[in-house]
């Protein structure tokens, strides 16, 4: 499965639904909800683990999408990217520091504080896929795979905790028991490496095509 390719294809299907919803077509909006709500709910639930609160957030997301659908510009962004961004923003805005605490439980029991265990978070008993596992699935897309390989284990883990689970820099630092400055620079370097690698991949594709 190529995640990034699949993403573009799904987005093309959604562009017309979104355009029609923007014209006030409720049936199109119902279909849009049908096709996207499980994805967006999955995204929101990673960040806000309380189901009732996550549903409240999702409700606001779709009300917001209905009201702003006519402002969606298909030439500027892909529908799925736009929708997911709105959902993540709402979920992050809904976070309070205290509510993120349960996400860290169970990690502090390790007696080996000095040892860097890149899979420490994934070892937490949980039926959810760990953030690193999600990254490796994304890496099925070839360009991302090559780009992810260029990152160190700490960089990968920092960016995965922040992006998938909505942890702040300080929370990632606490989780990994690393100084805040170190974590900030890991996240930053990981993002820059990802970007330059993806840009190179796009240029290679353009040259090949």
């Amino acid at each position: 499965m190529a995640a990034a390719t699949d993403w573009s294809e799904r987005s093309r299907e959604l562009a017309q639904l979104l355009a029609r919803a923007g014209l006030g077509d409720r049936a199109a909006f119902a279909t849009l909800y049908e096709r996207t709500s499980a994805h967006l709910f999955g995204v929101v639930l990673r960040i806000q683990r309380d189901r009732a609160q996550a549903e409240d957030i999702l409700q606001e997301v779709y009300v917001n999408v209905w009201r702003s659908a006519q402002g969606f510009d298909a030439a500027q962004s892909q529908p799925l990217t736009w929708l997911t961004s709105i959902a993540r923003n709402r979920a992050i805005d809904g976070l309070r520091r205290a509510q993120t605490q349960p996400q860290i439980q169970g990690v502090a029991s390790s007696g080996d504080d000095e040892h860097e265990d890149p899979d420490v978070y994934d070892s937490v008993a949980d039926d959810r896929a760990g953030p690193l596992e999600l990254l490796s699935r994304a890496a099925d897309a070839r360009a991302l795979a090559a780009c992810m390989q260029g990152l160190s284990a700490q960089q990968r883990q920092s960016v995965a905790l922040a992006f998938f689970d909505g942890l702040s820099h300080a929370e990632v630092a606490e989780q990994l028991r690393q100084p805040l400055g170190t974590v900030k620079s890991w996240v930053r370097r990981a993002l820059l490496a990802l970007r330059s690698c993806l840009e190179n991949a796009v240029q290679r594709d353009a040259a090949a095509g």
């Binding site: 995640a3 990034a4 709500s37 499980a38 993002l191």
Partner: peptide, 26 residues
């Protein structure tokens, strides 16, 4: 630019069905 780069990563998150009542609320 960053949304285009990062949002496709969320395709790997397992989908979760919200309760049927949510659509009625919306």
């Amino acid at each position: 630019g960053w949304q285009d780069r990062l949002m496709p990563l969320t395709a790997t998150i397992p989908p979760q069905r919200p309760s049927p009542q949510l659509w009625q609320r919306i």
